[in-house]
Simulated scan of single mutants.
Amino acid sequence: MILFPNCKINLGLHVTNKRPDGFHDLETVFYPLPVNDALEAITHSELQFESSGIPVPGNAADNLCLKAFHLLKQDFPQLPALHIHLHKHIPIGAGLGGGSADAAFMLRLIDQKFQLGLTEAALLVYAAQLGSDCPFFIINKPCFATGRGEIIEPLTLDLSGYSFMLVHPGIHVNTGWAFKQLTPKAPAYALKEIIGQPVTTWKDVLVNDFEEAVFAAHPAIGKIKEQLYAAGAVYSAMSGSGSAVLGIFPKNKIADILWDASYRVFTIR
Rank of each mutant, 00 (worst) to 15 (best):
P55V: 05
G22H: 04
Q48C: 09
A220C: 04
L116Q: 05
A231I: 12
F144N: 00
G176N: 09
F136P: 00
F23T: 03
I221K: 09
K73A: 06
W259M: 10
G240E: 07
P142A: 00
A41M: 14
S239P: 01
N36C: 14
A94F: 04
P198K: 11
D75L: 04
E150P: 02
V265W: 13
L33D: 01
F136Q: 07
C65H: 14
D75A: 07
G147W: 06
T119G: 07
H172T: 12
Y126W: 05
T43D: 11
I92S: 13
L159C: 01
Q78C: 00
Q48G: 04
D260S: 11
I139G: 03
L86R: 07
K141M: 01
P80E: 12
I139M: 07
K88G: 12
P187F: 08
D21E: 09
D62Q: 15
N252E: 15
G232S: 10
D111V: 11
L258V: 15
D25T: 03
F114P: 05
D256G: 08
M106E: 07
S243D: 10
I110Q: 02
G93W: 03
P142K: 00
A220G: 06
V199D: 12
L79K: 05
D21S: 04
P250H: 13
S100N: 05
N140T: 05
K18V: 03
L66T: 08
A261T: 13
G240V: 06
Q115I: 04
L96W: 04
P154D: 11
H218I: 03
A94M: 11
A94V: 13
P187T: 09
F105K: 11
K203W: 02
P34T: 06
L3C: 10
K225D: 09
P91A: 15
P77K: 14
